[in-house]
Design a protein around this nucleic acid. Sequence first.
DNA 1: GATGTTCTTATGTAAGACATATTATAGCGC
DNA 2: GCGCTATAATATGTCTTACATAAGAACATC
Lengths: 241, 241
Amino acid sequence: MANRPAYLKNLKSESVVQRVINCLTDGMISGELKPGDKLPTEPELAANFGVARTSVREATKILTYMGVLESRRSEGTFVSSGFQESMIDPMVYGIILNKGDDFDSLMELRELIEVGILQLAVKKEDKEGLDLVKKKLEEFETAVAQTEDVAQAAFQADNAFHDAVSALCKNTLVSKIDSVVRMLTYSVRWETVQTMIDSGRGEELLEAHRKIYDMLAAKDLQQIDERIRNTYFLDALDREN
Amino acid sequence: MANRPAYLKNLKSESVVQRVINCLTDGMISGELKPGDKLPTEPELAANFGVARTSVREATKILTYMGVLESRRSEGTFVSSGFQESMIDPMVYGIILNKGDDFDSLMELRELIEVGILQLAVKKEDKEGLDLVKKKLEEFETAVAQTEDVAQAAFQADNAFHDAVSALCKNTLVSKIDSVVRMLTYSVRWETVQTMIDSGRGEELLEAHRKIYDMLAAKDLQQIDERIRNTYFLDALDREN
DNA sequence: GATGTTCTTATGTAAGACATATTATAGCGC
DNA sequence: GCGCTATAATATGTCTTACATAAGAACATC
């Protein structure tokens, strides 16, 4: 994970809280801590690690807000079994995010994941799931055809559509990554939909979604590889202009 | 974000820490707190909110680890500007927690990411990085040609090779995911290398790596898409047999 | 047997003290 | 005056102790 020589591990940096987080994380990686497991109590952890309870608390709180742990008063702290979304408002990320070199990395990851989802989806064949996508596509049509609050309705429909597509890949990990990426790209996507709707390119947006459905329905892996990159990421295209 | 009737707002939930987080995020959303801005000191915040400093700290720590805030000792806490790598940590934990019951998903993700790395690498062109990959390939050759502890040497060389390849994509997020996935697939990969070496298929292993290098050197995107899936994941092939 | 009371447990919150890293400033010698 | 070092000021980092509170369990009550 680090590309620094192992022998100069952590004379500095590596705060107490970080160390506690690492210990807990290692436990999860090694399998000692599995989803559903109960952690020792905070005082016990503090004693074992030789740190203050406040430090343990900061660590567990962080992991809690990431959706990794779950604390129940009077019961204890547990490794969470289903993962929830992060409790931080996606809007906040939007405030911070838009700029920076690493944002490009995020967009690349997004493309990689979303194309991957389509490829997996084609392999797996899920008639019902595909029907759901079709339904979401139709809802998207009506959203675009609306008279007021079109952008908002379209954005909502867009998210629902992509959720349905994401489910098609039948891979919880990939879907999870997709959902996080979509959360982090929340504001860009919202702006894109907004500007496209406002500038009367709603039909174009719709067409892009329809193409995705067609490819999925036709199981056209070739097209996915070759052409989707040019139509799927409208916001990326916009950025280049 | 909530779909609960408004009138039962929050008789419960809404802890002190959560309230502090909400105040801060509201400030960011409203624009009172912009990227780069300095927050009041922890004692000041505590006094203003009428809560303990520990609660303020838990809130800011959480936001810090989410990549929203940045704390610098003796200077203060600031709204971070730009993308923070830690923002994808929730996703990483999602991968870690899910590995146990969903090994196939993990392997699919691995393929997706590693093929993605190759594609990105071809786009980005990094002569020095490519030379490093070549060097690692040569080290792999000598490792396989060794007389004792071949499997271990080969495995180590294999990891070094893939690290070098991973760096080629110049995308910290993708590389991070790759490293986590590789960490979680550690034992499978180790077993694969071991059995292949032990059964005298070392040359085959080497050949697979050489092919990857050749594709990268030739910038052969086509081959990556079409053929790599059949040679890259030897362990996956083994599993199917 | 259902209801209410107490007791236990572990997290939630508070308050104060000390440690430490970074910056700014004052002092000192030259 | 210039440059160096020592010191103080500042704000986060960590530790300690104490108490509040929610949820469950055991028990008593009607």
